[in-house]
Design a protein around this nucleic acid. Structure first.
Length: 918
RNA sequence: GCCUUAGUGGUGGAAUUGGUAGACACGCAGGACUUAAAAUCCUGUGAUCAUUGCGAUCGUGCGGGUUCAAGUCCCGCCUGAGGUACCA
């Protein structure tokens, strides 16, 4: 009987469906294991062969854990709100609800063909009201919370109100947008409006006028992680700075906890590093500088307090409030002109054009340590949003200050002994201080500490920690997203009562965004609360729905809570999370923040959501080329192309096999090629190739459906794993899939020859047992280490060995079938039943390696002299090191190599090498 | 610039603690079966030299070092990929 993968796969996929094989429930008698894939945006293009890579890996791991006795939660769903889904709808001129439903159906169809063990009864879709109800619910909680820095957790805003009523801001230590100071009396005298405005400074979800990245082409505000080099990541459109009234989430309050949490989770070093950079903690000193002839001082932030004696000027960000305060009348015109010029530059221009610009303010500051007068300048190389928006410039030891000083001819005073600053600044934190009064003779590190101490003691400043991490802007001027559970009364925002959730997204016809930033929800008719107050017209961003979805899978049908107590306590958090690196500074920060907030509320029991995280690599495309001789319709084969003047043209990889072009299909591919002529080599047309992004325009997209049709899902699964290490990016190359398919057929051949079932009940030989147990050991080790590509090789070796021994013993084949189950579930299920079992192979028990079968009776020793292997010999395994040494030294060959010379030492190592040093 | 990560045959990639580098697969070459082709199976396949046989020499981006022994450890570079950046 032939290996009929089509019939086998159809049969078992429907068996699993009918028997709900993959349905999971809480089962306290078994340990839990939660394996999660990053859920996809159901895009219109469908899946290509790169998408399932991570899904296959997590599927193998889930099945493996289940076979080991764990109760495995392995769900899947769709991130169906947000820009990508909406952009696709706009491009195709259909309503996003329609396209989203269609795309999801298509995704599901494709996923089902590959035979995943998802529990689909737990599916979530972020655009469904019973899901986004909980997104809105979390928003209300954030609105009603503030961050208490002393307790280091989020607390109810009512606690803050009580505090204000009792003692004002006197003992307050809370994360806020502005430093406010008032007494209890003040508070109690404030109007409702004023109080609400004050509270807005503390809420974790807050409304504020914020400088935002606005993208006119998308008609929408974007978060920092949605932009790269001044262009939107989605679409690559230019982005400009605007001040808009927006909802934000106070992620910055969690900066330190987000950083600390990284120490306790099992993520790759590179990903942790990316998050650390993004959070950008820097410990430094905040120092007060007096202004000459003015009644106030201003603060700067520096990490190089040690260089205080080298300060030769100060710089303010153009947007800094200090600018107006310090500018002298004489310089006013010049300063205003500069500010105007800066304003007109876009973010992109500022990045691409790094000219040194700036203007003198006319004012002087007093160095608080040396009491010297130093000029105050204004320049856009200082950012308003970081630190205090003002710096002390030390041109000798900071490259940016150096460029500025050179350009405007300001003095450069080195304060580290022996450095040369004639050509460039000396930025390294390394050396001995000089020209620095009381710091002279100290190292840089000591000097930083000494200055901190000095500054504190003299009341000039304080030690301060700054973070680069910004609050997340949470409003989008878009239709396809969660509506805010917010309405406006007298211009003030109020959140809905939880009982009114979900607040449904109204169905409107004109959902297009506008370049001016007017939200499309403005078109909704009667979009008001029962009392007639208007709702917030912005919607939430894409990351809102994806920030807590992993919790919802634990308890997807609970309509009383995001996740119930019992489910939370049992499933806890995600044990293994698989997805791409592209979410490092977006989803993976927001999710951690969101989870920590819920942890503070006592809703979840773990403060880190994803214990272990693995990034699967991208699968790139492998494009094929044909070479057309210029101005003709003649194509020349790859190795002959240099003899002609040719243009390379992308050709559809699906009509090329092992780089040989299928000429008939090529002629029918496009009308132009109907009459094409060919110059062949050895009767074949050989195509060139290159690794590029997988995309339609390069004709290198490979659809998993086609592979499943031709080779079966099990071959696809094996082959995707065989391509290379999971975490590495690699090109898809269909060449080579035959090898994997051959292996499955060979495996089938252990069970069947032509029409005949071969199984026998005989006792296995030692050699057969050794083959099997070698495989058990290797595969177990490999799956635990996510090294799937080498397990595939181990399977091939094992099957080759068994096949050359003509092994048909049930005692060998049954464990082999179980080992196969995570990788090729359909085939494993079929063979498991052929072996006479009546239950699913998913409920079998993972075999355990018996090391005793692996022990050799004889060890092969390579004998080397001075590190060079000369000959080898076999000795009984039972010999001790000393005995081996003795035998080797008395050997005839050894005598020949030693040639009468005495030996210095003999090294015998367990790895079966004997080295004799002469 | 900084951080992370990688560099091994014609190709994808193995080598778990330093221990006979190149597993496994593709491709290629030769052979078997076949009227022929496909499919399948067998053999060979890092390079150079020697091939009458044992073989010999060189080989893991480059240059040094440690060690009886280095793809693996140390020092100094080069190149690719990814992240990040007027963050003081």
């Amino acid at each position: 009987m032939e290996y009929n993968f089509k019939e086998i796969e159809r049969k078992w996929q429907s068996y699993w469906k009918e028997n709900s094989t993959y349905k999971v429930e809480i089962d306290k008698s078994r340990p839990k294991y939660y394996v999660l894939d990053m859920f996809p945006y159901p895009s219109g293009a469908g899946l290509h062969v790169g998408h399932p890579l991570g899904y296959i890996a997590s599927d193998i791991f889930s099945r493996y854990k289940r076979l080991q006795g764990f109760n495995v939660l392995h769900p899947m769903g769709y991130d169906s709100y947000g820009l990508p889904a909406e952009q696709y709808a706009i491009q195709t001129g259909q309503h996003p609800a329609v396209t989203t439903a269609k795309n999801i159906a298509r995704y599901r169809e494709q996923l089902d063909k590959i035979g995943f063990c998802y529990d689909w009864s737990r599916e979530v879709r972020t655009c469904e009201p019973d899901y986004y109800k909980w997104t809105q619910w979390a928003f209300i909680k954030m609105f009603n919370s503030y961050y208490d820095n002393d307790l280091d957790k989020a607390m109810p805003i009512s606690d803050l109100v009580a505090k204000f009523e009792k003692e004002g801001t006197s003992s307050l230590n809370a994360a806020s947008s502005a430093d406010l100071s008032f007494t209890a009396q003040d508070w109690n005298a404030y109007s409702e409006k004023k109080r609400q405005e004050i509270l807005m400074n503390y809420r974790i979800a807050y409304l504020a006028d914020t400088k935002v990245n606005f993208c006119p082409a998308l008609g929408c505000v974007l978060a920092n992680d949605e932009i790269s080099e001044g262009l939107s990541i989605r679409g690559g459109y230019p982005v400009e700075q605007r001040v808009m009234r927006q909802w934000s989430l106070r992620v910055s309050a969690y900066a330190q906890r987000l950083l600390d949490g990284l120490e306790r989770i099992d993520w790759t070093e590179s990903l942790k590093e990316t998050q650390k950079n993004w959070i950008g903690r820097s410990e430094g000193t905040e120092m007060k500088f007096k202004i000459k002839d003015k009644p106030f001082d201003f603060e700067i932030f520096t990490t190089r307090a040690d260089t205080i004696h080298g300060v030769t000027f100060m710089v303010l960000a153009p947007e800094s409030d200090y600018v107006k305060m310090v500018t002298t009348d004489a310089q006013k015109a010049e300063v205003d002109a500069y500010l105007d010029q800066v304003k007109r530059r876009t973010e992109r221009e500022r990045i691409s054009d790094r000219r040194v610009t700036g203007v003198f303010s006319g004012a002087y500051a007093i160095n608080p340590v040396t009491n010297k007068e130093i000029p105050i300048w204004i320049s856009d190389y200082v950012l308003a949003g970081y630190g205090t928006g003002a710096i002390m410039a030390v041109p000798a030891h900071d490259s940016r200050d150096y460029a500025f000083a050179k350009h405007f001819n300001l003095p450069i005073v080195p304060v580290i002994a022996g450095c040369d600053v004639s050509e460039e600044s000396f930025d390294a934190k390394d050396g001995i201080m000089t020209n620095s009064g009381f710091l002279d003779g100290l190292t840089v590190k000591e000097a930083i500490a000494a200055t901190k101490k000095y500054v504190k003691e003299h009341g000039i400043g304080k030690v301060k920690v700054n973070y680069r991490l910004r609050d997340a802007i949470f409003s989008r001027q878009r239709y396809w997203g969660e509506p805010f559970p917010v309405y406006y009364k007298d211009g003030l925002p109020y959140v809905l009562d939880e009982s009114k959730l979900p607040l449904m997204l109204p169905d409107i016809e004109n959902f297009l965004p506008t370049a001016s930033g007017e939200p499309p929800l403005g078109h909704a008719k009667n979009w008001n609360t029962e009392e007639g107050y208007p709702y917030e017209l912005n919607t939430m961003p894409g990351f809102a729905g994806s920030s807590a979805y992993y919790l919802r899978y634990m308890d997807p049908h609970n309509d009383k809570a995001l996740v119930g107590k019992e489910a939370d306590e049992y499933w806890q958090n995600v044990d293994l999370y698989l997805g791409g690196t592209e979410h490092a500074t977006g989803h993976l920060i927001y999710s951690r923040f969101w989870n920590k907030f819920l942890f503070d509320l006592g809703v979840v029991c773990k403060d880190e959501p994803f214990q272990k995280l693995i990034n699967q690599g991208m699968i790139q495309g492998r494009s094929n080329f044909v070479y057309r001789i210029k101005d003709t319709n003649t194509f020349v084969s790859y190795n002959l192309k240099d003899q002609y003047d040719v243009t390379p043209i992308h050709v559809d990889v699906n009509i090329v096999s092992n780089d040989v072009l299928d000429i008939e299909r090529f002629k029918n591919w496009m009308p132009d090629y109907k009459t094409a002529e060919f110059i062949l080599e050895d009767g074949k047309y050989i195509c060139g190739w290159a690794v590029e992004k997988m995309s339609k325009s390069m004709f290198n997209v490979v659809n998993p459906d086609d592979i499943v049709d031709k080779y079966g899902a099990d071959t696809l699964r094996f082959y995707e794993m065989f391509l290379g290490p999971l975490e590495q990016s690699k090109p898809w190359d269909t060449n080579g899939i035959d090898g994997v398919h051959r292996f499955l057929k060979k495996l089938w051949g252990l069970f069947y020859s032509r029409e005949e079932l071969l199984l026998s009940d005989a006792e296995p030989t030692n050699e057969e047992l050794k083959s099997l147990h070698k495989l058990i050991k290797k595969v177990t080790y490999d799956i635990d280490n996510f090294s799937f590509n080498t397990s595939v090789a181990a399977f091939m070796i094992c099957v080759n060995e068994l096949s050359s021994q003509k092994c048909n013993k049930k005692a060998i084949l049954e464990p082999l079938t179980i080992l196969l189950a995570p990788f090729a579930p359909h085939l494993a299920e079929e063979l498991y039943h052929v072996l006479g079992n009546t239950t699913s192979v998913c409920d079998a028990k993972w075999p355990i390696c018996n090391e005793s079968y692996l022990q050799e009776s004889a060890a092969k020793y390579a004998v080397s002299f001075n590190g060079k292997v000369r000959f080898s010999m076999e000795l009984p395994i039972s010999l001790s090191k000393e005995e081996v040494e003795k035998v080797v030294l008395s050997n005839e060959q050894t005598m020949k190599f030693m040639d009468g010379k005495p030996y210095k030492k003999v090294i015998v190592v367990p790895n079966k090498i004997v080295n004799i040093v002469l």
